[in-house]
Design a protein around this nucleic acid. Structure first.
Length: 664
RNA sequence: GCGCCCGUAGCUCAGCUGGAUAGAGCGUUUGCCUACGAAGCAAAAGGUCGCACGUUCGAGUCGUGCCGGGCGCACCA
């Protein structure tokens, strides 16, 4: 049990004893300033309120806090307790004791009973990925890393809509604008995703100049549905080749997947038929015999029914159209029932791509002969998280309702749509891309990206630019590094800049993309955090050269330096200063927990930057100069603090998907 | 009309389930490389937290109503 948990338990018991009240969720905070303590319980306010309600008597929060404080004096690890402000119960930890145990990291216990499925990226396989798609992928990948850091088992899915309108549109472009057949498409040597990016924009213009041209889309979609023939072959080729481009782009950012479920296989394997039967059996959907939805299978939304008993079911969702064709929402409900193992059917799987670390990405197939028995079991998760933009909230809501109607248990309730806002272009960014900005957009300050117009920032272009900028800095500073080393360093810096840029915004905030900000390597950026690590590395290199093993000092300082001496060093103004850095650095597990429970990676990103910033303060302070410190105990303490900071920064960066270079 | 998101410093954004003196980066101004790497640090300036009521001992945070911006609300995907 941690000190925090022990304090909480004692406090809860004390509240029961003194006031006969049981508070299962005791709020605990970290005071705004070190002088105020390490743990703050505002519980006296809450109790005062409750006591007034039940007894009618007023109770001063300070008195309540004072009474409760006595029960906390004896806990080992607690130095003292103070009452502050209007009735805060502030706990000061035994700093020396805390430091000695800080190095032992407890393995987190998972919250889910089984595998959690995270679906992210899911970009239409018809053109190059842009920065908006990347926000999805980075949020998703970081969520995966967060869940794993929290002890969960995670399966990463990237859903491939290979039969949709978007792929069909590119096929229309090849067939009718470029008059290319399959063999001509396969012989395109250019970057295929970039090629299709431009072609897709041309198709957009083609539809716009004459709406009659949309007929070609309908015809093409129909041909693709056949599952055979030249047009189908073309669409299959396009989507598969683009998918490989996407995987390659994502690999540059260390984003990997376990399995790629394809829309075409969902259709071919009659996943829907199974789900349809299940939904009917559970009464989740019903056949409308009257009203405007007559002839459809609909999902009733009872919570939306009018108070007046109005018969109009505005929020009813059509699952099967009156012509017998299932809607997108219906298909998605089916797919999610599969995710939770509710259908009793499965896809077949074959290897699609092998990562450099020998991990295999599997792709679904409908052909039993292609099935490779070596695949891991997919689906059948304990919960799902879908990283999908906020615009899809409405259908996602119905997907969840549908899945819950068929399978009402809390594993579904805990599943969630991880909604995030879009990325738009700042007016200046749009201009830099050669777009004419309308007066209206200029006033608003932003322009929406549009694949149909070919307007957007491609991920690979952005990474290239970042790497170039980083390489310039690296070569200017480290002429001693060889080329490969310089490039690898620049690569890590570029990834850090890009991933941090996308993670520092909370999910619900629209990112206004600006080249200057996205390409920045200083300020609140990923490289700033990496830089803190390299500064530590530099100190440690010098220590090693002098025969001092920093890690050994760290693990020993709990025991080798006497507790009393440690306490002395961590007391007073200077002690407070050092302690606040230690305390912040060791709160990574709390931060991870917070980020996971709110599914908000920005919380971790901000914390990591904050720690790097606080370390810079420490680093720059002449009082904490490690190499010139003559007092051996004090030096051991400074080394220990530095080592803890480094360790925690590296751990946090790994969760953020960022590697720190040795030097930069 | 209904629903969701946003409105905090000149700009871009944090502010955890209400809590102690509202923070960061960028930009501006001024300093600091003969003590660990200046991709850094210090200092200054910059705020009616959109507005108004309400709940509370306490509101940037919760409720209601406005104002302003964005997005959803298909037998599209």
């Amino acid at each position: 049990m941690t000190v925090q948990e022990a304090v909480r338990e004692h406090l809860r018991a004390a509240i029961r004893d003194c006031y006969q009240i049981d508070l299962p969720e005791l709020g605990v905070e970290v005071p705004p300033r070190t002088e105020l303590g390490d743990l703050a319980f505002p519980v006296a306010f809450e109790l005062g309120k409750r006591l007034k309600l039940s007894t009618g008597q007023k109770h001063n929060p300070r008195d309540i806090a004072t009474r409760l404080a006595q029960s906390l004096q004896e806990i080992s690890g607690v130095e003292r307790v103070e009452i502050a402000g209007a009735g805060y119960l502030n706990v000061f930890l035994d700093r020396a004791e805390y430091l000695a145990t800080a190095m032992k990291h407890a393995t987190p216990s998972p919250q889910f009973e089984g595998k959690v499925i995270v679906e992210h990226t899911s970009v239409n396989p018809n053109k190059a990925m842009h920065i908006g798609h990347l926000r999805n992928a980075v949020l998703g990948d970081t969520t995966v890393r967060l869940l794993r850091a929290a002890g969960e088992t995670v399966e990463v899915q990237n859903y491939i809509d290979n039969t949709g309108v978007q792929v069909a549109d590119v096929v229309v472009g090849f067939k009718y604008l470029e008059k290319k057949m399959l063999d001509e498409i396969t012989s395109i040597d250019d970057r295929f995703d970039y090629y299709c990016w431009d072609l897709y924009a041309r198709v957009g213009a083609f539809y716009e100049e004459d709406p009659f041209n949309l007929e070609l889309r309908t015809r093409t979609l129909h041909e693709i549905e056949q599952g055979t023939g030249e047009t189908y072959e073309m669409s299959d080729y396009v989507s598969t080749r683009i998918l490989k481009c996407h995987l390659a782009t994502m690999q540059r950012l260390d984003i990997e997947y376990d399995v790629l479920p394809r829309e075409s296989d969902v259709l071919h394997l009659d996943i829907w038929q199974r789900a349809f039967a299940l939904l009917k059996e559970r009464g989740a959907i019903e056949y409308a015999t009257e009203g405007r939805l007559k002839g459809c299978w609909v999902m009733r939304a009872e919570d939306q029914r009018d108070a007046d008993g109005d018969t109009e079911h505005e929020a009813d969702k059509v699952i099967v159209r009156s012509n017998g064709i299932v809607t997108y929402t219906g298909k998605d409900i089916a797919f999610h029932l599969w995710k939770l193992g509710q259908l009793g059917v499965d896809f077949y799987y074959k290897p699609f791509y092998v990562y450099p670390d020998d991990r295999v990405v599997w792709v679904t197939t409908s052909n039993p002969d292609e099935n490779d028995e070596a695949h891991a079991p997919f689906g059948n998760g304990a919960a799902y998280f879908n990283v999908i933009d906020i615009g899809q909230s409405y259908p996602q809501h119905y997907v969840k309702l549908g899945v819950m109607a068929a399978d009402r248990d809390d594993r579904v309730a805990r599943s969630a749509h991880l909604a995030y806002e879009k990325v738009v272009l700042s007016a200046s960014a749009a201009e830099e891309l050669g777009q004419r900005v309308s007066e209206e957009d200029r006033k608003r300050g932003s322009v929406a990206m549009s694949g149909r117009k070919g307007l957007g920032v491609k991920v690979d272009d952005l990474i290239d630019q970042l790497q170039l900028g980083a390489l310039r800095e690296v070569t200017a500073r480290h002429s001693d590094m060889d080329d490969a080393q310089q490039r690898e360093t620049a690569r890590r810096i570029a990834i850090a800049a890009l991933r941090y840029f996308l993670l520092k915004y909370t999910r619900t905030s629209i990112i206004s993309f600006d080249f200057k900000e996205a390409l920045a390597l200083k300020g609140e950026t990923g490289p700033y955090i990496q830089y803190s690590v390299t500064r530590v590395n530099s100190i440690f290199r010098k220590l090693l050269a002098a025969g001092v093993q920093p890690d050994a000092v760290m693990s020993a300082s709990g025991g080798a330096v006497k507790k009393e001496r440690l306490r002395e060093l961590l007391t007073g103004e200077v002690g407070d200063d050092l302690w606040s850095l230690i305390y912040l650095a060791t709160r990574l597990p709390d931060t991870v927990r917070g980020a996971v429970s709110s599914l908000e990676p920005a919380i971790l990103a901000k914390w990591t930057f904050q720690l790097a910033q606080k370390f810079s303060l420490f680093y720059d302070n002449d009082r904490y100069h490690i190499l010139s410190e003559t007092d051996p105990d004090r030096r051991a303490l400074l080394i220990t603090i530095t080592a803890i900071v480094r360790q925690q920064l590296l751990a946090a960066l790994e969760i953020l998907g960022i590697e720190a270079p040795e030097r930069m």
